[in-house]
Design a protein around this nucleic acid. Structure first.
Length: 302
DNA sequence: GCGTCCAGGTCTACC
DNA sequence: GGTAGACCTGGACGC
């Protein structure tokens, strides 16, 4: 086993842990985390046949990345890994406009000063979409079970116990029956197979979503074309491609909103939408950060 | 131990 | 465009 240590320099408005633990992704393999030490781990595919394990931790104005690999890594492979991790941590995106917008609203001033706003994403859109479908209509425990099963059954192995996220080809080569029986994906199985087949065949280019010039509502419609991706899933996928116009309401955030703004009383979704409308193109991000503020700040425990 | 409900929803058919 | 019903699964809950 070879160990390589790399460093990623970070901008001033960046907070590593608030990014790593910005939503549930850190808890789904091949990500894992340790909240006591504030470390994020990830198994990454460098190229065909090369899988590595990375351990990330903030050190001042940089992130220290400790990489374990079977063979020594080439310069190109190191650069590719850094590029993947920067994309996961959203370091190639500019949040200064968002933090400026936050300063305009007294209730959100804490966002800029705490370096919040970046939401962890997977190295590929394919992984983000597959996982998002696995979060629908089930408990978080079942989401974890489905994703863990996908990774362990189809992902390339690293060091016996770890696995990378599976390729579209690997899942496409399976069957709906297998996904139902072994992955426990239930009725989502045909959606996952169809998605993997379309991506593997090249008929669907999910990765273009991150650089798309389409107007936000058009991109949203395009996401909705994927079977299993409804308003909740598309709304949250939008955040992972850098667009924050949608709230992505689900039963968990609705309950949070009721507690925070309505003393536990339920309201219609349209009422929640109306509440955040004045926050413009950043409303989805303001909303999510407000709902999860207590994750990072004991003063806001619910 | 067993039945019911519901969870970080979506799809389809029907009106 | 709006809505009812079906859909996998596993854990929590009541009995």
């Amino acid at each position: 086993m070879h160990t390589t240590v790399l460093n990623i320099l970070t901008p001033t408005n960046f907070n590593f842990w608030r990014t790593a633990y910005s939503h549930g992704w850190a808890d789904l393999p091949p990500f894992s985390y340790n909240s006591d030490t504030e470390e994020l781990s990830r198994v990454l595919t460098v190229d065909s046949g090369t899988v590595v394990s990375a351990l990330l931790k903030a050190k001042g104005k940089r992130i220290k990345v400790k990489i374990d690999s079977v063979k020594p890594l080439s310069l190109f492979q190191k650069q590719f890994l850094i590029s993947q991790l920067k994309s996961c941590l959203r370091l190639n995106e500019d949040f200064s406009d968002f933090h400026r917008a936050a300063r305009w609203h007294p209730e959100y001033k804490w966002i800029g000063t705490s370096g919040s706003g970046r939401m962890l994403r997977a190295p590929t859109v394919f992984e983000d979409v597959l996982k998002m479908i696995c979060t629908t209509n089930c408990t978080w425990a079942l989401t974890k079970l489905m994703v863990t099963n996908l990774v362990e059954h189809f992902g390339e192995e690293f060091h016996r116990t770890l696995h990378a996220f599976p390729t579209a080809e690997a899942i496409a080569a399976s069957s709906e029956k297998y996904l139902r029986k072994e992955i426990k994906a239930g009725y989502r199985s045909p959606y996952l197979i169809e998605l993997a087949e379309r991506v593997a065949s090249g008929k669907l280019d999910l990765e273009s979503w991150r650089t798309s010039d389409l107007p936000t509502d058009e991109l949203f419609k395009q996401m909705r074309q994927v079977k299993g991706v409804g308003p909740y899933a598309a709304g949250n996928l939008m955040k992972l491609v850098g667009r924050y116009d949608y709230l992505g309401l689900d039963s968990w955030v609705r309950a949070q909103y009721y507690k925070l703004h309505r003393n536990g009383r339920t309201v219609k979704d349209s009422t929640i939408e109306k509440h955040y409308e004045p926050y413009g193109k950043w409303r989805g991000l303001f909303f999510w950060l407000e709902m999860t503020r207590y994750w990072h700040d004991d003063k806001f425990k619910l």
